[in-house]
């Protein structure tokens, strides 16, 4: 086992998406970069699970590995009854219909040479469901995500970032997915627009019975929409739990640091850390956070912390939980 325990996973029968000991590696000049080093979590139908952490902590790579856009080096991803890495290309393609994704850069997500109506209709063309998704249905979908259908013939560059993200969402919803993976969907947007997109996702979640896997570096964004939260640090899970419990009682020093950076969190400034994220090419021994942790001791350098339970649904991987 590469990771730090799977005790925090709930009963497998309840989970729509279950990730066990996921490892993703990239070969780089200096050797092998292990971007994700044994990550486990599960998502139940209708839940919103957020993965938070700094840039480079492996949260986006985790999201991509979940739908096998990056081939995991190790680990098991189970979606419903299907174990994704055991599937052939054609089977994976079929399963991915129910496992859609939206991306960070809304403008890059849309083909600049195609009209937005055509872009939204593309999944219907791919799966030969044109009779289900005629012009009328596409118009309805555009209205649903807040784009006036009369602008359907415009090109993506004529829309703002927020509007482009709405178009991306509409395109993903045409396949009527069960799980929507949102990889930093609002990071590139103005703060005022962020709230609109988050509200939209929340509304669509109930309208389309979606399960949401939400990736973000911003705890303030995550706080209002999450049922559960995973905090990642340098390719590992630092803390995972019910959103209320985690935000009210952050136990990992790293989580406390992230929260202290959010205005109005009430956490002291001395919880803040200094320094940069160490290189994942050569991660620190023991607890990967020990190089920046104010509470680090000998054991943190020598031993990898495993999960300990804080609350019924709140687990932390730390030798000195706060």
């Amino acid at each position: 086992m590469v990771g730090i325990g799977t005790e925090h996973l709930r009963d497998a029968d309840d989970a729509i998406l279950r990730v066990e000991d996921l490892v993703v590696e990239f070969s780089v000049d200096g050797g092998t970069l292990r971007a994700v080093a044994g990550v486990s979590f599960d998502v139940q139908a209708g839940e919103t699970l957020s993965i938070v952490g700094e840039s480079g902590c492996g949260k986006s790579t985790t999201a991509k590995a979940v739908i096998h856009l990056e081939e995991p080096a190790d680990g098991v991803v189970t979606f419903g009854d299907a174990e994704l890495s055991a599937l052939t290309g054609a089977e994976l393609r079929e399963v991915r219909r129910e496992l859609q994704m939206i991306f960070q850069d809304p403008i890059s997500s849309l083909n600049p040479r195609r009209a937005v109506r055509d872009i939204i209709q593309e999944p219907a063309h791919i799966w030969e469901m044109e009779e289900l998704w005629g012009d009328e249905e596409i118009d309805e979908m555009m209205t649903e995500v807040g784009i006036d259908p009369q602008y359907g013939d415009r090109r993506p560059y004529q829309f703002s970032g927020g509007q482009c993200q709405r178009i991306s969402i509409a395109r993903a919803l045409v396949l009527n997915p069960k799980v929507l993976i949102a990889d930093e969907p609002v990071s590139a947007l103005d703060v005022s627009v962020q709230a609109q997109i988050l509200n939209l996702l929340d509304d669509l979640k109930s309208d389309f019975q979606l399960t949401l896997l939400f990736i973000s570096h911003d705890l303030a964004v995550v706080r209002n929409i999450s049922d559960r939260v995973v905090v990642m640090y340098l390719g590992r899970v630092a803390e995972i739990g019910d959103a209320d419990s985690l935000f009210d009682n952050p136990s990992h020093p790293y989580t406390r640091t992230l929260l202290a950076a959010v205005p109005g969190s009430g956490l002291e400034a001395d919880d803040s850390i200094s320094g940069e994220l160490p290189s994942p090419l050569n991660p620190p021994t023991g607890c990967r956070f020990h190089t920046r942790c104010p509470y680090a001791t000998e054991i943190c350098i020598s031993e990898v912390p495993v999960f300990t339970q804080q609350d019924p649904d709140h687990w932390v991987a730390c030798h000195h939980p706060q």
Binding site: R96, M101, S108, S109, N111, P112, E122, P123, I126
Partner: peptide
């Protein structure tokens, strides 16, 4: 490298479809 090509893959588009519909016009 753009996300719209990745998005097409996730949607289930074949290589042929990605090349003809997403890349060729650009």
């Amino acid at each position: 490298e753009r996300d719209f090509v990745t998005a097409a893959r996730v949607l289930g588009a074949s290589h042929r479809r990605i090349i003809v519909h997403e890349l060729l016009p650009n």
